[in-house]
């Protein structure tokens, strides 16, 4: 099977040839298959934002290649432009990009740029709004009258409406309260489930990364330093701490318990898993 997106030796320099030259990402090899759900973690300046902007052709690699469905996205101008619709990118604080008079028109902006028919646009707008939980009654409202969380969901719908094969979200929950964050994450999970498309999302929350992703990428200093399942990644807490990234709180509790001599598995990173493991331990004791 051909990976849906792939980078080969991707390197990007900012301001090349000037005293401000800086390596943003270096020699990055990555590939994702259709339907994968991938979390991206790393500090500000670790190269993760530069990386995701390469996947839909907003940034051009200084060296290396970016492939969509096996083809170099920079091989022709039409390919580069076309890939913007196939790889949907939702930026941080996407609500700041809203501009239309109505929610409907704003969501329709992307599909319109794709030169789709009116019926097709209509179908996609309604589908996208539904996927992010924006009700019909809000479609004719001005996006500026909505609450913060609603605005963000409209902005995400604006990208989803292009029906991209790959959806990338840069910190989709930044600045939202716990309820708002949970709602957005549920929307994204639901979207992934219903559309079966590939999803990549950047997050600073180890807990969120652990809870909803099947695979994690860890960035540091412009390199992809770890790539694996949450299980595999959180089993390497020393390496994560060495690059100043934490592990989920629960994994830390489990590590302490193991230090104290409690016999539970190390690869635990959600409350549910910890509870199950502890209860199993208790039953085991009761049986013995």
């Amino acid at each position: 099977m051909t990976p849906i997106v792939k980078t080969e030796g991707l390197t990007h320099l900012y301001s090349p040839g000037t005293p401000f030259e800086r390596i943003a990402v270096q020699d990055l090899d990555f590939q994702a298959m259709k339907g994968e759900f991938i979390g991206i973690i790393g500090h500000t300046g670790s190269g993760k934002s530069t990386f995701i902007q390469h996947l839909n052709g907003l940034l051009k690699p200084t060296k290396g290649r970016v492939l969509f469905d096996g083809e170099d996205i920079w091989s022709s101008k039409t390919k580069t432009h076309g890939v913007r619709f196939k790889v949907g990118l939702v930026f941080q604080y996407p609500e700041y990009q809203l501009f239309e008079e109505t929610v409907y028109k704003d969501i329709a902006f992307g599909p319109k740029n794709m030169k789709l028919s009116e019926e097709e646009i209509d179908a996609r707008v309604r589908e996208a709004a539904d996927l992010v939980g924006i009700g019909e009654e809000l479609l004719e409202k001005s996006p500026f009258d909505l609450s913060g969380g609603q605005k963000r969901r409209v902005a995400i719908a604006g990208v989803i409406a292009m029906r991209p094969d790959v959806l990338i979200l840069d910190e989709p929950t930044a600045g939202l309260d716990p309820a708002g964050s949970a709602e957005i994450l549920a929307n994204i999970k639901d979207y992934h489930h219903r559309m079966g498309s590939t999803v990549l999302f950047v997050t600073h929350s180890m807990e969120d990364a652990a809870r909803i992703a099947d695979r994690l990428l860890v960035f540091s200093g412009g390199h992809l330093v770890m790539d694996g399942t949450p299980n595999a990644i959180f089993a390497r807490p020393e390496e994560l701490e060495a690059i100043d990234l934490g592990i989920p709180e629960i994994t830390r509790v489990v590590a302490r318990l193991r230090e104290k001599g409690l016999d539970i598995p190390a690869a635990i990173y959600t409350v549910e898993q910890a509870k199950a493991a502890l209860m199993k331990l208790k039953e085991g004791k009761a049986d013995a």
Binding site: L58, F85, F91, Q97, M114, M162
Partner: peptide, 16 residues
Amino acid sequence: EETDKIMNAQKARGAD
């Protein structure tokens, strides 16, 4: 900086 950001966000939605 903000102009750059918004421009990129709209480009990602196919704005030309």
